[in-house]
Amino acid sequence: MQDCRILITRPEPENTLSRERLSTHGWTPVPLPMLEISPIKDTDKQAFIRSQVFDIDTYDYVIFVSKNAARLACEWLDECWPMLPANVHWIGIGQGTTQTLLDKDVPALSNPGHTTEALLDWLRPAKMRDQKILIIRGEGGRPELGNKLEERGAKVSYLSLYERKKPHYLAQTFFMLPDINLIWVTSGESLLNLSEYASLYKPEWKALPILTPSIRVNQQAKEMGWINASCANGADDNSLIKATEFQIGKQND
């Protein structure tokens, strides 16, 4: 299993970065993104984004839900804010998202966990009342975080910077792939798209070890028929690599 072939379903550009990390471990990454991330191009929507970014200093907290949200937001911040406002608390959900912000000199904090649920546990209810919070995400993101914060008395706004689309693959794509030993999936939406394709073209994949980022997504995987799903406790490369090493160790025993 040292030459483990791992299917990487992250969207680009993160897919390429993960493959580079995996190669240093002597494993063979196999790219098959299960989401396409497209920055918002509509001119009216871009004008709205720009106005919200210019007003970002009016918020107490700015929360980034993904690495793509962080990456695209940093481009807008560079355009609108030569110096970041000092009164804002910048928060990334998960270590990978937070590191993306830190790499762009945004002084972000991350909760000890890696999920929306962990962030809610970390943000004390008493501190949220009357706080203005901006959640930066993709269009159609999960509403749970914002709803829970509003229940605690926060004033929540949203800023959507990208669209998520299901990639279009032909049957030939799957027939030309090498044999896979293990699968990385990093979101519930990617899991759904992968499951649909697997049911059509690669039903045998559902018996393979598949690593998921959270307990919630792991439960979804089991409900979709993935019989060997394990939670990596994070969508970042470090968490998934650690879980991969554990899986390989089990199979080598």
Score class of each variant (00 low, 15 high):
I8M: 09
P13S: 08
L17T: 13
W27P: 01
P33E: 05
S38E: 12
K41D: 08
K45C: 05
Q46N: 10
R50T: 05
Q52P: 05
V53S: 00
D57E: 15
T58S: 15
A69H: 01
A73H: 00
D78F: 07
D78H: 10
M83C: 13
L84E: 14
H89I: 13
G94Q: 13
Q95S: 12
Q99S: 07
Q99G: 02
K104P: 08
V106N: 12
N111R: 07
T116V: 14
L120G: 03
L123N: 04
L123A: 08
R124E: 07
R129P: 02
Q131M: 15
I135P: 11
E139C: 03
E144P: 01
V156C: 10
L159G: 06
E163K: 11
H168M: 06
F175H: 15
P178V: 06
W184F: 15
V185C: 13
V185W: 01
E189W: 03
L191C: 06
L192P: 02
S195G: 07
E196Y: 11
A198D: 05
K206W: 02
A207L: 02
L208I: 05
L211F: 09
S214N: 08
W226R: 06
W226H: 09
A229F: 03
C231W: 00
A232W: 08
N233H: 13
G234K: 07
G234R: 03
L240K: 13
I241C: 09
I241D: 06
E245G: 00
I248P: 02
I248S: 04
K250G: 07
Q251L: 15
N252R: 14
